Amino acid sequence: MSKMDLEIPKNKHNIEIWKSIFSSQNLELLNDTYGSINLKEITDLTKSPSLFISDLILKLISFLKKYDFTLFERTILKLDNMLSTTLFVKSCSFEDIENIYTENVVTNELLLFCFLKKILDGEYEDVKKYVVIVNGILIQIFNSNKKLVYKLMSIFNTNLLFNEAIGLFISDLSKHYIQLIVDEFPIGWFSQEKDYRRKILESINSESENYIFLLILLYEKRRCYLSNCLINDKIGLILNNTLTDLCSCDLNYYLKLFEDEEIIAKLIEILNFIKFLDSEWCYSKVDYKNKFYVYYSDLLILSFAYKYKNLNDGEVKDLFKDVMYDDFIKEIIHDDDIGSLKTIEENLFGIS
């Protein structure tokens, strides 16, 4: 089937034909047509190479939306298969989605999911209103299918808007459900440009019980992840591995829950772990280096807590010089991570 431009019907008879094509009784026409055409475009919704969109079908749907939005709205609310729902939502702007969502009680999980995906695929300068509607969609999905929300944690794991909305979403959840959601968070490498998890914390009242509970859960999740990494001595770790994408959560954990003296004591403890690393039993050279990086990543995080609390402790400084200026540090630390050693020094000695 060759490409063709969509022409607006010239008379009432043709208009009725267009309306009948998109009536709820004829939705399967889309699927029948889909199977017979040459499919070329990758959908912006799924970004899956297995799902393509026909120019003709999209033009038909776009015409329906412009010609009779009420009919379009009534039709989209009745869709019950992934293909048709994806096609219709692809033709929607955010304003269309907002109108349909706010003017109707949308209970169709498939439609809500497609709305969510379309919104999250966008790029926005001001995300506030988008966060609110994403949060509303999450609440609706959660009320009908909690397991689907848990799955969304991995699907949209690296989406900044989604992480910000999740923070707003879990603000009012019970601790039981917060635990279940955190359990589904995949742990990834640290990236300063894509600090996704920080967005969760920014959306929650830092004085609330749920904020404190979340900090504890995320701190424990990182500790568990690092313990599992040490069990597998075949994988060599570097700093970004051990910092993980939860490092900003760990930093907030120390800032919120630790007294000044506890920060100092923890730093001294970590520096001593590194100093006496040779006395620990290690299965291999990789295991030895991995243990170093676990301690070293904690040292870096704690150095920022020390800095932000404006601490000044002589024992910490002396121990840092004794341990971290040793030649074995330069031998064990990866070349790409040398810069972080300078950062720790600046944090502890107040060098700007």
Rank of each mutant, 00 (worst) to 15 (best):
L111N: 06
L111I: 08
L111T: 07
L112F: 13
L112H: 08
L112G: 08
L112Q: 12
F113W: 15
F113Y: 15
F113C: 08
F113V: 12
C114H: 14
F115V: 06
F115M: 02
F115E: 04
L116F: 05
L116W: 07
K117C: 03
K118P: 02
K118F: 04
K118L: 07
K118E: 00
K118Q: 09
L120I: 07
L120K: 02
D121E: 11
D121W: 02
D121M: 00
D121C: 01
G122V: 01
G122C: 03
G122N: 04
G122M: 01
E123S: 13
E123C: 08
E123H: 09
E123L: 04
Y124P: 12
Y124R: 10
D126K: 04
V127C: 01
V127Q: 07
K129I: 13
K129E: 15
Y130F: 14
Y130K: 13
Y130S: 07
V131C: 11
V131M: 11
V131T: 13
V132P: 01
V132R: 15
I133L: 15
I133E: 12
I133V: 15
I133G: 11
V134S: 01
V134L: 05
V134H: 01
V134N: 00
V134E: 07
N135S: 10
N135C: 12
N135Y: 09
G136R: 08
G136S: 12
I137H: 05
I137N: 02
I137Q: 02
I137K: 03
L138V: 10
L138F: 07
I139F: 04
I139M: 06
Q140R: 15
Q140D: 14
I141T: 05
I141S: 05
F142D: 14
F142I: 12
F142K: 05
F142T: 07
F142Q: 09
F142C: 08
N143K: 14
N143Y: 12
N143V: 06
S144C: 01
N145P: 09
N145K: 06
N145G: 06
N145M: 06
N145Y: 02
N145I: 09
N145W: 02
N145F: 05
N145T: 10
K146E: 03
K147I: 15
K147S: 11
K147W: 00
L148E: 04
L148V: 10
V149D: 05
V149T: 10
V149I: 11
V149N: 01
V149G: 01
Y150C: 13
Y150P: 01
Y150L: 15
Y150V: 08
Y150Q: 14
Y150I: 15
K151E: 11
K151N: 14
